[in-house]
């Protein structure tokens, strides 16, 4: 092998780098579909479209469960007593302070709509249980009040609110 001049050396290095770079770009591009395929497919996304729920048949004091995007949604028709209990609480005593007014739609105090999944590790809490008459999670003992706020136990946050709006006084659209 003859000695390689430095100019030729640079040209050769450039060629190697360019080839390697193009190869790396190709490999990265191949990874895109392999990762993307695990995301929800088009039919799953379409099935997650907003749903409408008729509230008329829900009696006062009753809690119904509907499903939206594979999640249970609790719709609670709260009694006067429950509303008052939720509004009276001293916010300073709450692990995740939030007034009841921030958890319902204005003028619809009697309707509480929350995602029914315990914020601890994803179990479904039981309705009308626990010392605050709200929800009690049987898995690890988290207790929620009538506003769906965490009061006791290992859960770090209140039951989240799904995006929803009142279409009429007795109908909501979730999503």
């Amino acid at each position: 092998m003859t000695t390689v001049s430095s100019a030729e050396h640079t040209r050769r290095d450039f060629l190697y780098i360019a080839t390697g770079a193009i190869g790396a770009v190709g490999a990265a591009a191949v990874v895109v579909p392999l990762i993307a395929q695990m995301n929800p497919d088009a039919s799953t996304i379409a099935a997650g479209a907003p749903i409408e729920v008729d509230l008329a048949p829900v009696a006062e004091g009753q809690i119904i469960k509907v499903f939206w995007r594979s999640k249970p949604i609790f719709i609670s028709h709260r009694s006067k007593k429950e509303i008052e209990a939720a509004q009276k609480v001293d916010l300073g005593s709450l692990p995740d302070p939030q007034p009841d007014s921030a958890r319902v739609k204005p003028g619809h105090d009697q309707w509480l709509v929350v995602v029914g999944i315990c914020t601890h590790l994803g179990c479904i809490p039981l309705a009308h249980q626990g010392q605050y008459e709200g929800w009690f999670c049987p898995c690890h003992g988290s207790v929620y009040d009538t506003s769906g706020r965490i009061r006791q136990g290992p859960a770090p946050a209140n039951l989240p609110l799904p995006p929803y709006a009142f279409v009429s006084d007795t109908k909501i659209r979730i999503g």
Binding site: L15, T19, I22, G26
Partner: peptide, 16 residues
């Protein structure tokens, strides 16, 4: 287009 460019570069790399 990508593969043809890549093949061309690979060819010259191979030759080198």
């Amino acid at each position: 287009v990508f593969l043809i460019v890549f093949a061309g570069l690979m060819y010259f790399t191979k030759k080198k």
